[in-house]
């Protein structure tokens, strides 16, 4: 870990840093300093939140209660529909398998290797 340099960056320079006016090299050296210097970092955070972008990020609204309850109703209904759908499919598959197994059982009992014709031919 490097020790923080005692010379801090000016407010003006940090202002240009947050508004993206510096070169990549300049920006990178400031970024490294900010990682180690609490004073410059908190000033930078402040300057950033005063920028239109920083402000707009902060301004992100909250979910209102009407939307929240509408969302929950719709979601629960959708989950029910989908569970119902998959229950029917599952039941259908299980039903089919047990019937198929029931039909095959006599063959399996009679011959060790039953030859079962699979499916019907497509037209």
């Amino acid at each position: 870990m490097t020790t923080a340099s005692t010379t801090h960056f000016s407010r003006d320079l940090l202002e240009r840093y947050v508004s993206g006016q510096l070169s990549e090299t300049e920006s990178e050296s400031i970024t490294s300093h900010l990682a180690e210097c609490e004073a410059c970092l908190s000033l930078t955070d402040q300057l950033w939140t005063r920028q239109p972008i920083g402000e707009a990020l902060l301004d992100n609204p909250d979910l209102d209660t009407d939307t929240a309850s509408r969302l929950e109703r719709k979601l629960v209904a959708r989950i029910h529909r989908s569970n119902l759908g998959s229950a029917v499919t599952r039941l259908g598959t299980q039903g089919f398998l047990s019937v198929a197994f029931g039909l095959l059982r006599p063959f399996m009992a009679a011959k060790p290797t039953p030859h079962v014709e699979k499916g019907t031919k497509d037209d």
Binding site: N60, P61, L63, A68, L75, I79, A87
Partner: peptide, 24 residues
Amino acid sequence: AKDERPFQELFHRYQTLVWRVCFS
């Protein structure tokens, strides 16, 4: 599928967070 209440509780906890991400 037998009980969706635990999921509803998770929904209550994270609906705002998720909505805010989606809005942003």
